[in-house]
């Protein structure tokens, strides 16, 4: 019931970013590769040759089986990790460590346990935000993610899905040029998940931002993204790269039941190694089951 407040926001009045009209940035991956040193001096390649250019304001969904390197890709884009090959450009310049043109919604909530939800969300505000504006924006975001009744609670006093929503609000509070979301809806029940997806679209419609969205959920990708990339292995080479790239037709909000999307859905599930009739061919994972390590 408390989520009902998200619906009117679709009307176009800036829901979370009153007064801010920061630009969205282009993100370019140029031959990106990442290998991790493993024992016995060898190294293990997780990503290779990832090249794609994301337009300012575009929503790009990143799909792939568990462990294929989605989080790694996102971390490199945010300057939380560095590539071992290639580079990432944001707005034409290479990323720096903990790049402040980006904001990250981590796969885990990562809230400070000793702070209230309000204070945790406020951590996301850009530095130098006037106090009153900041407080208003935090309150608005907390309301949008449906946590108003829990604003004063500590993270341990709320559920995992609520913590994930608080973490999403914290990333949104940053009002970044590039929003990096790592399975932001993974721990949510089906209904709340749909509502949060709509919230994300509202926020995106109200203030331009480029969104890289990692997800396990093919339907979520089809619903939210302008374009979808599927990370996976090709050939006998080590490391994931872009195995499929799909431009999603139509404009948002999309009809979740359209036949065109159903066809794309089938192709993506195929790419993930899942038989259209629900049989898993690979050992890795299924698509829609929330995968959320606590």
């Amino acid at each position: 019931m408390y989520l009902a407040s998200t619906a009117p926001a679709a009307s176009g009045s800036a829901p979370a970013r009153a007064g801010t009209a920061d630009a969205a940035f282009a993100v370019e991956f140029e031959g990106l590769g990442r290998s991790f040193p493993s024992d016995r001096g060898a190294s293990r390649t997780v990503l290779r040759d990832v090249s794609i250019s994301v337009q300012p304001g575009e929503v790009l969904a990143i799909l792939g089986t568990s462990g294929c390197g989605k989080s790694t890709l996102l971390r490199i884009a945010g300057g939380l990790d560095s590539a071992t090959a290639g580079r990432v450009l944001i707005d034409g310049t290479p990323t720096v460590d903990f790049d402040d043109r980006t904001a990250v919604g981590f796969q885990e909530p990562r809230l400070l346990p000793w702070r209230s939800i309000t204070d945790n969300v406020a951590l996301g505000l850009p530095r130098g935000t006037p106090k009153a504006d900041g407080a208003a924006r935090v309150a608005r975001l907390i309301e949008l993610v449906g946590l108003s009744d829990f604003a004063g609670h500590r993270p341990r006093e709320i559920s995992g899905g609520m913590a994930q929503r608080a973490s999403l609000a914290r990333a949104l509070a940053r009002n970044p040029g590039v929003l990096l979301l790592d399975e932001p809806f993974g721990a949510l029940d089906a209904l709340t998940r749909l509502k949060m997806q709509d919230l994300l679209l509202d926020v995106h419609a109200a203030a331009p931002t480029t969104v890289l969205l990692v997800t396990h959920d093919v339907d979520e990708a089809l619903q939210l993204a302008d374009r979808i990339i599927l990370l996976g292995r090709s050939n006998e080479l080590d490391g994931s790269t872009i195995a499929q790239e799909i431009v999603v037709p139509g404009t948002r909000p999309r009809d979740r039941g359209s036949a065109e999307l159903a066809e794309l859905r089938g192709r993506l599930l195929d790419g993930l190694g899942i038989d259209r009739h629900g049989q898993a061919r690979g050992v890795e994972t299924t698509t829609a089951i929330p995968h959320f390590p606590y």
């Binding site: 939380l80 981590f106 990562r110 400070l112 000793w114 996301g124």
Partner: peptide, 24 residues
């Protein structure tokens, strides 16, 4: 992970210390 989150949200040096490490 908390320290990394703190850095990702623009904290470093003394502010990172007083916001994340010291309370922890």
């Amino acid at each position: 992970q908390l320290v990394e989150a703190g850095r990702a949200f623009g904290l470093n040096g003394a502010r990172l210390f007083t916001t994340v490490q010291l309370p922890a």
